[in-house]
Structure formats: structure tokens, C-alpha cells
Write a protein that binds this DNA or RNA. Structure first.
Length: 551
DNA sequence: TGGCCGTACTG
DNA sequence: CAGTACG
DNA sequence: GCCA
């Protein structure tokens, strides 16, 4: 890229990154490897390279023709069931792609795929179109009528692949804050204040040295966003938990002058700016960022060129721009559904008969999505196998399946090598696995963070509670449990004894004291009022006298 | 004044 | 182990 | 940073 420009650095960030990446993955099509090419075109000004190195790109990406078709069909059905009102193109953005797979396998690769007539963006951005050629007509015509007519999704539709995997979701839809389309809008003043406090928090987090200020400010910011009344006088906040005099003073300044002098000066230093940028890369925290800064590294570009990055960090760097963008709720739905469909297919491939697949496992949307947020920072899917079958390799298989169907997948955890070494030494990992990665569904512009967590059924309620969050809510609830002498985690409730001194001053039991079937039961056991997911942005509230013991 | 969540993965 | 990340 |  940037070939022609005389001013272009001989080795720009992206060039270096590109080299590293190409070297690391010689077998992956270029477009999949270099998503920023499209991103840059869209978000920066004119692209300097018009002559898209017309890629051969064709073929390569392993077959998958046979499984791709049912996958997308099922995904479409699943999405249609959840969004009956959406226009088809909106529901299935990948239909807009110039070419599709679903080739009858034998279909000739029909030579040089014509460069997508695509106007501007999204150009060669798909690893998907490379798979096949021709017959997107077949695809479109096959599963329904013409996309073109748009709007009318055609009467009969969807055999319905049954989304009951997501039991909770279906049952509680009406309770979701944003299923009612009307998103509660907080007073603008509060949002402004929250943003400023978040900046303060972000600063302390990036610079390090004071995680507790970070904790305090981010907690306050969250509370401000959730406040139902407008802050007109900073003193009002003195009566709100976790706001103290210092913060009230800051907020008073913000209300009066619209800015925080102290924040501005803190942010303006070179070091602060460098750390702020570096820590945006997944896998780079304040320590490593400080480390790099001490070595003279002040940008992601420099970090990449330094060769100091770990494998995970390199993946993070490749996509860190995409990952700054929040994910609209509808896209989260699509990704969760894709995972669910892949899970079902995987179970089927493992011998679970079709009629039993519903009960054999489920994929539940969690995180901010379950809390009803209109957009999310990432996608959290809680997986559970309930038929007693083995969990081993389930996550990997699901991802392989999606990959084969044309989804672009990049691992932050579970890199092949690491996987092996890991398998032998940890017993626990066999039954509880935690995956982090980056994926992009074909037709979507940006790559998104995907978190998968797999638990045995007996952990499900605790896991769901944990995975739904929010972070501050969890910490609050766990803190509260601790005051009762318990330790609450995503696996259960155990005894916790606080010892004097030292930092690791807490001794935990190992036996789960209470097998909860639902979240409600957990709240109840702890003497807490049940809180709907959409309300889990603030602290927990004990009701009456807290129980002394679990029975 | 000292505590501020509990866990999983990486290297 | 420290570091980073997850909610 | 806030709080017990």
C-alpha cells in the first residue's frame, strides 16, 4: 500500500504489520489478513492505492462448501425469528457481498473472479467472496425471493431452527430494556459528567500507579449514567454512595467551567498520551506500556516495529482500530446466533440426534447485551452442554465450524500451540473453558471481540450471573457475599475466611455450598433482592437481615 | 487506617 | 510468578 | 478515589 507516494515511509506501521502477519499466516487470504486496508479507505481520506493488488485470493480458504450452506440457512432463520420486521438486506448483510459460496462443490471456480464492482469501501475486505464465485443468484433465489424488492420478507419464511438454546432470552424478552426500542435516555448533563469522569478513570488506568482511583472514578461514571435525575448542583451527589467531597469538587468545577483543569494538564503529557494509545491494544496494560515507553516507544506503530509484541498483542494490534467501535445490538444478535447455530451443528456432528439437540446444549447471550444495552463493546456468549457429553474441544470445534462457513476468526487465547501444552496440566480446563477472540461475519465491516465461556450445567446459574455483569455489580455482590463469610464466583458459593494481614488474606473453601438452578436462587440465598439484568449497573441491595448461614 | 472480586489465560 | 483480561 |  501507499506504494506510489513519495512521502510514504519506506516501512509504515501497516507495512511492517503486514509483513509480520503475512509471514505468520502464509496460507490465509490477504483480505482476511489486512482488514485495515478497507478500514483505512473508509475512515481516512482518500486511499493512496487505487490499484488494489488484484489478489488471486481465490480458492485457498479451505473447502467447507458442504457445511457452509446449512449454516447460513439456519442463521438466517434464527435471525428472522428474532427480527421479523427487519428488511432482508438489513437482516442478512452478507447477501450484499458480490459473490457467495454455496457452490455445488463441483462448480468450476469460474476463473478470475471479477473485481467486486463495489463502489468505495468494503472493497476487497471479504475473505468470504474468495471462496466461491457465481451463483449468488442461486443463493438468493434459493432461500427466498429477490433481495432487491427489499422490504417484503415474503410470507411463509423460516422453518425455524429453534432458538430455544437461548431459553432465558426467549422467556424474558419483554423485560429487556431495549426490546421496547425506547432506550432510556439519561440527562445530557449526567452523560457529560460521566464522560469526564471516565476520562479521569481512563487516565489513571493507562498510567497505572493508582488502580483505586481508576476504580472509584469509573464507578462514579457508571452511576452518573444510571441516574434518573439530572445533576444540577454537585452537592446533590454527596448523598449518593461512592461520591465524596473530592469528586463533588471536581464535578462542581465541571458544571461551572465545562472542563477539569487538572485532567487536561495530566492528559497533555507525552507519557500520558503514549500510554493511552498503547494500552488500547488488547494485551497491553499499564505495566507493559510503561515498559515500552521507557524504551522510547510512544505509539502502536512503534511498538509493532519494535518486535517486542507477543503473539496475542500482535493480533490485538492488527484489529485495535476496529475494536474501538461499539457494536450495534442487532449485530450482537447476529454473532450470538452464529455461535448458537455452530454449536448445534457441532453437537450434531458429535452424534447428538437432531431431536435431542435442543436440550443438549445452549448458547446464551450475556454481558451488556443481556443487560439490555443498545450497543456493546464485545459479544459474550455463555455455552453449556447439558446432555452429559464431553465438553472437550467444543469451543475449538465451534470456531472451526464458523471459520469453514466463511466467518473470519482470530484467536487471542487458545492459539493452537498453547492449547496443547495447556491440555495436560489443568484438570479444570476440561470442564470450564474461557475463550477470547476476534471475528467478523461476512458482509459486516468491522471485526468484533468475541468471548466464549463454557461451563458444566451445575455452574450455569452462577456463570450466567457472572457473565451478565456489570463488572461493578459483580464486585459489589461478591464484596457483599464476603461480608457474610462467603466467596461468590462464577462456579458457586464457598466459605471464605478472612485472615489478618497480608494481601492474600482470604482463605476459601472448595466445596460449593449451594447448588443454584437460577440466578434468583443465588440472590435469595445471599439475602439479596433479585435484580433484573437491565438493572445491574449499580450496587446490590440487601433485604432485611442478611442470613448468617446458608442452609 | 487499610481494604477495595474472583477467576482464567499468557509467557 | 506478574501481567492482563473478563463480567 | 471512597468507605468502614
Amino acid at each position: 500500500m501507499a506504494a506510489a507516494q513519495p512521502e510514504a515511509q519506506p516501512s509504515s506501521f501497516w507495512q511492517v504489520l503486514e509483513e509480520q502477519v503475512l509471514e505468520e499466516h502464509p496460507d490465509v487470504p490477504r483480505d482476511q489478513l489486512l482488514p485495515w486496508e478497507a478500514w483505512e479507505r473508509k475512515h481516512r481520506k482518500r486511499s493512496c492505492d487505487e490499484a488494489t493488488t488484484s489478489e488471486p485470493g481465490a480458492g485457498s480458504n479451505g473447502g467447507g462448501g458442504s457445511i457452509a450452506e446449512p449454516f447460513w440457512d439456519a442463521l438466517e432463520a434464527s435471525l428472522r425469528a428474532e427480527h421479523p420486521h427487519l428488511a432482508r438486506e438489513e437482516l442478512l448483510p452478507w447477501l450484499k457481498l458480490p459473490r457467495q459460496r454455496r457452490q455445488p462443490a463441483a462448480a468450476a471456480p469460474s476463473a478470475a473472479a471479477p473485481p467486486p464492482p463495489d463502489d468505495t469501501d468494503n472493497g476487497g475486505d471479504s475473505d468470504y467472496e474468495a471462496i466461491g464465485s457465481e451463483e449468488d443468484e442461486a443463493f438468493v433465489a434459493g432461500s427466498s425471493d429477490s433481495t432487491r424488492a427489499g422490504t417484503q420478507p415474503r410470507a411463509a419464511i423460516v422453518p425455524l431452527p429453534d432458538t430455544s438454546g437461548n431459553r432465558w432470552a426467549s422467556r424474558n424478552k419483554h423485560k429487556w430494556q431495549c426490546q421496547s426500542t425506547t432506550t432510556k435516555t439519561a440527562p445530557a448533563t449526567n452523560l457529560f459528567l460521566a464522560d469526564e469522569l471516565d476520562k479521569l478513570a481512563a487516565h489513571y488506568k493507562a498510567v497505572g500507579n493508582d488502580e483505586w482511583r481508576y476504580f472509584a472514578f469509573s464507578k462514579q461514571a457508571k452511576k452518573l449514567r444510571d441516574l434518573t435525575w439530572e445533576v444540577t448542583d454537585a452537592k446533590q451527589l454527596l448523598s449518593v454512595r461512592s461520591f465524596g467531597q473530592k469528586s463533588v469538587d471536581k464535578i462542581a468545577e465541571l458544571l461551572a467551567t465545562g472542563a477539569l483543569r487538572r485532567l487536561e494538564t495530566m492528559q497533555s503529557t507525552d507519557r500520558a498520551q503514549a500510554l493511552a494509545e498503547l494500552t488500547k491494544v488488547h494485551g497491553v496494560g499499564c505495566k507493559i506500556a510503561s515498559d515500552w515507553y521507557a524504551k522510547g516507544i510512544t505509539s502502536v506503530e512503534a511498538a509493532v516495529q519494535s518486535g517486542l509484541m507477543t503473539a496475542t498483542q500482535r493480533v490485538g494490534a492488527r484489529f485495535y482500530k476496529d475494536l474501538q467501535v461499539r457494536i450495534p445490538r442487532a449485530e450482537v444478535t447476529a454473532i450470538v446466533d452464529a455461535v448458537r447455530v455452530a454449536l448445534r451443528a457441532t453437537l450434531g456432528a458429535r452424534g447428538v440426534p437432531a431431536h435431542a439437540i435442543d436440550g443438549a446444549g445452549d448458547a446464551t447471550a450475556s454481558g451488556s447485551y443481556r443487560r439490555g444495552k443498545p450497543s456493546s463493546g464485545d459479544v459474550d456468549v455463555l455455552l453449556c452442554r447439558r446432555d452429559g457429553g464431553s465438553d472437550e474441544g467444543l469451543i475449538e470445534q465451534i470456531l472451526e465450524y464458523m471459520k469453514a462457513a466463511g466467518v473470519s476468526v482470530h484467536h487471542l487465547t487458545h492459539e493452537e500451540e498453547v492449547q496443547r501444552g495447556r491440555a495436560q496440566r489443568s484438570v479444570r480446563t476440561a470442564t470450564c473453558s474461557s475463550y477470547r477472540g476476534i471475528i467478523r461475519l461476512p458482509g459486516y465491516e468491522l471485526h468484533r471481540r468475541l468471548d466464549l465461556k463454557l461451563y458444566p450445567p451445575e455452574d450455569f446459574a452462577y456463570a450466567l450471573l457472572y457473565f451478565t455483569g456489570s463488572d461493578h455489580f459483580n464486585r459489589s455482590m461478591r464484596h457483599y457475599a464476603k461480608t457474610l463469610g462467603y466467596s461468590l464466583s462464577d462456579h458457586g458459593i464457598v466459605h471464605a475466611v478472612k485472615m489478618a494481614g497480608g494481601k492474600d488474606n482470604c482463605v476459601r473453601g472448595t466445596k460449593n455450598l449451594f447448588e443454584a438452578r437460577t440466578e434468583q436462587e443465588i440472590f435469595e440465598k445471599l439475602g439479596l433482592q433479585y435484580v433484573e439484568p437491565s438493572q445491574r449497573n449499580t450496587d446490590v441491595v440487601p433485604i432485611g437481615d442478611a442470613p448468617r448461614r446458608l442452609q
